[in-house]
Design a protein around this nucleic acid. Structure first.
Lengths: 184, 184
DNA sequence: GAGAACATGTAAGCGGTTACATGATTAT
DNA sequence: ATAATCATGTAACCGCTTACATGTTCTC
């Protein structure tokens, strides 16, 4: 009944794309699903070891010259089965969002409107940067959409979420800055 | 340097609106900022006590007939000062988002598209419900906008974020369901 | 009669971040 | 030279959720 650890499924999902090391997984999470998911090394490495103990993944050590060895993990049939089981499950409950900017804005009557204008503007530039990154990824994904890999389509759908979110947020920022200026 | 506990400021912020009990704060958080912030009783009560120990709030016990006593907290000048300090600070770093639906969608090549159609559709109806609630709150806020309380304006701005977010998400759901049907 | 709302709290445990530890290679 | 990338891990700590504990009144 308690909140299950979803990091495990994030690992299995990543390994379902291709065999990877812990380091690879970190990078792929950042570049691929960083807008709505994050994992740190201190979670990744122990979970990966746990997966092998449970027979959901196997390891092979790749020796490299001049670099540390890579522990490359591959998903097993059993791992795939467990991943599918999780994918089938309906999603219950809410994702917790804690957006500090909005918390401050809600209590902004305690300070001058200019304070919040500054905060919202820097939030806005951050968002604009993020959107540009997404657009670049989009361009590279669009080239691959014809390929036989259906996973590309799913990657594109999640990316679109990020783009929709940024767009909406940027429009909101414009409006809020306008409103704040009227109060100032 | 470590991640500071922002729950404290959520409490101070709530008390900056009016004196409240822990129970009141919980309700006000749910109804007012629930779309981007949450607190549980096991955080609220200890923090409230801590605030009084630090001189940031005072308590008064209201006796009631047939109901448990209410411990009503009021913010002190010192509390207001600390709240303002926090409001002034620039917001550093990212808010962690963990949206399970998107995690599943990213790995959806492992299951039939119909599985994700089901998930996205129930996500969509949830969002639509949320949006309706927001619209109701919006209607009641619009009536109060003329009032002398400037805090209403800030409440409206944060509510607008929720509305923008829901709108964008609903449009995204429409598109994704279309795309998924083409894959099925 | 069941369940929600009112009202306050504690204890245990997991989830997750931050800091620590190590060290070579490559790019600026 | 300095920083970044590659690469794997551990330990400590904090934040937060879940479960537990208690009891009345009001609503369906």
């Amino acid at each position: 009944m308690s909140k299950r650890n979803k990091s495990k499924y994030a690992m299995l999902g990543m390994l379902s794309l291709k065999p990877m090391s812990g380091y690879d997984i970190k990078k792929n999470i950042e570049r691929g699903i960083g807008s709505f998911w994050n994992e740190s090394f201190s979670q990744i490495y122990p979970i990966l070891r746990q997966l092998t103990n449970e027979g959901l993944a196997t390891v092979s050590i790749e020796e490299q010259i001049g670099k540390p060895n890579r522990n490359v993990y591959s998903i097993t049939e059993q791992g795939r089965a467990e991943l599918k089981e999780w994918l089938d499950e309906p999603i219950i409950g809410q994702y917790p969002m804690r957006i500090e900017l909005l918390l401050k804005l809600f209590f902004a009557h305690n300070v001058s409107p200019n304070v919040m204008i500054t905060h919202v503007e820097s939030f806005q530039t951050q968002m604009a940067d993020t959107l540009m990154e997404y657009k670049e990824v989009e361009a590279s994904l669009l080239k691959k959409l014809d390929s036989k890999k259906e996973s590309i389509h799913y990657q594109y759908m999640t990316l679109k979420f990020g783009i929709y979110f940024c767009d909406a947020t940027l429009k909101w920022c414009d409006q809020v800055i306008d409103d704040l200026k009227k109060l100032a």
